[in-house]
Simulated scan of single mutants.
Amino acid sequence: MPHTMTPDGIGIAYQVRGEGAEAPLLLLAGQSNNHHWWDSVRDDFHGDRSTMTFDYRGTGASDKPDLPYSTELFALDAIAVRRPRCRAGRRLRDLHGRAGRPAARGAPSGPVRALVLGCTSPGGPHAVERTDDVRRSLAQTQPGAARQALLELMYTPAWLAANPGPYRTLGDPGMPAHARRRHLAAGNQHDAWQLLPGIGAPTLVVHGTDDLLNPAANAPLLADRVPGARLHLIPGARHAYFEENRAVASPLVLDFLTTVPLP
C-alpha cells in the first residue's frame, strides 16, 4: 500500500481506485475510522472519476504515534495525500468530507475545486452539541451496549434489521487505545468557526434531519458561515446517511460536482 509523508514526519497510507477524466475525488472518513468507511458506496463515484481515500494518523496502515492529534493535523494528512497525485499531473480538486471537520480545516489550503461537508459541525462554542442522553448512551459499560447505541445513532432500526453488517462506521477496530483517545481529544477540541468564511470553493453541506450524534442544527450554521454554500437536509436520515440513504446522497454529491466548472 503506498504511503506519503506529512510535513511533521508521519507516514500516511492512501488508496486510489477507479479511472476517469474528471477531477479525482478525495473521500475523507469519519474520525477514528480508516478508509474502509467508504467501501459500500465508493463505486458510486467511479463513473467519470477516480477516488482517493487514506487512513488518518492513528488508523489503518498509517503511523500511530502516541502524540497529541488535532483536526489541523488530520487536515495535514489529507493535504499530504493530495500532493503525490498533483505531482503526477492529476490535481485533486474535489473533497467529500463525511464527518468533515478535517475537510473544513483543509479546504482553505487548496487546490480544492469543490467541497462537500457531511454531517459535521463548526466545533467550538458555536456548535450545537449532542445531548447528555446521547453521551450517556455511548458511555455505557455493559458489554455491547455502547456499540449498540452507536449503531442506532448511525442507522435507523429498519435499516439495521435489513442489513446485519459488517459495519464500517463504528471506528477502526485495529486502533491502539492511545490513538483512540487521541482522536477523541482532537474531535473535542475542534473549532473551525473562524476558518469557514475563508473557504473559497463551492460548498455543499449535507446532513440527516434525524442525526443526534452530530445534531442537524449544525448544518445551517455551516451553510450560513461558508460563503455561497448550499444546504441539503435528508429527511429521516441519521449520522451514516451516506450509506443508508446512498440512493439520495451519492447522486446529490455527483450532481453538485458536475455544476462546478473546471478552472
Score class of each variant (00 low, 15 high):
Ala29Cys: 06
Ala216Cys: 04
Arg98Cys: 07
His36Pro: 00
Arg225Gly: 01
Ala162Met: 05
Ala139Gly: 10
Arg130Ile: 02
Arg93His: 05
Val248Ser: 04
Arg90Ser: 15
Ala80Arg: 08
Arg42Tyr: 12
Pro24Thr: 06
Tyr56Thr: 14
His190Tyr: 15
Asp224Gly: 10
Thr203Asn: 02
His35Tyr: 10
Ala149Gly: 03
Glu22Trp: 14
Pro261Ser: 15
Ser32Met: 14
Val16Thr: 14
Asp39Arg: 11
Arg85Glu: 14
Gly89Gln: 05
Arg82Thr: 14
Pro235Gln: 04
Arg246His: 12
Ala186Leu: 05
Gly47Cys: 08
Val81Glu: 06
Ala185Leu: 15
Leu150Met: 12
Pro2Phe: 10
Arg49Lys: 00
Thr156Glu: 03
His36Gln: 11
Thr59Cys: 08
Leu221Asp: 04
Thr53Pro: 00
Arg181Gly: 07
Asp132Met: 11
Pro261Leu: 15
Ala179Phe: 07
Ala145Val: 06
Gly9Trp: 08
Pro24Lys: 11
Leu150Ser: 06
Glu129Gln: 13
Phe242Leu: 10
Val128Tyr: 05
Gly208Asn: 03
Asp48Val: 13
Asn214Glu: 07
His96Phe: 14
His126Val: 13
Phe242Tyr: 10
Pro111Cys: 04
Ala80His: 09
Arg147Cys: 03
Thr169Met: 07
Met1Ala: 13
Val116Gly: 02
Gly144Asp: 00
Thr6Gln: 01
Asp63Gly: 09
Arg135Cys: 06
Thr209Glu: 04
Gly198Cys: 08
Ala78Leu: 03
Glu243Thr: 13
Gly110Glu: 12
Ser109Cys: 14
Asp172Lys: 06
Asp211Asn: 07
Tyr167Glu: 06
His190Arg: 10
Pro65Glu: 01
Leu27Asp: 00
Asp132Tyr: 08
Asp94Ser: 14
Gly9Arg: 09
Leu231Cys: 00
Leu221Ser: 06
Glu152Gly: 08
Asp77Ser: 00
Asp43Lys: 13
Leu254Pro: 04
Arg135Lys: 14
Gly118Thr: 02
Ala217Lys: 04
Leu138Pro: 01
Ser70Leu: 13
Leu184Tyr: 15
Arg225Leu: 10
Glu152Trp: 01
Leu73Asp: 00
Met175Glu: 03
Asp77Thr: 01
Gln140Cys: 04
Ala240Ser: 10
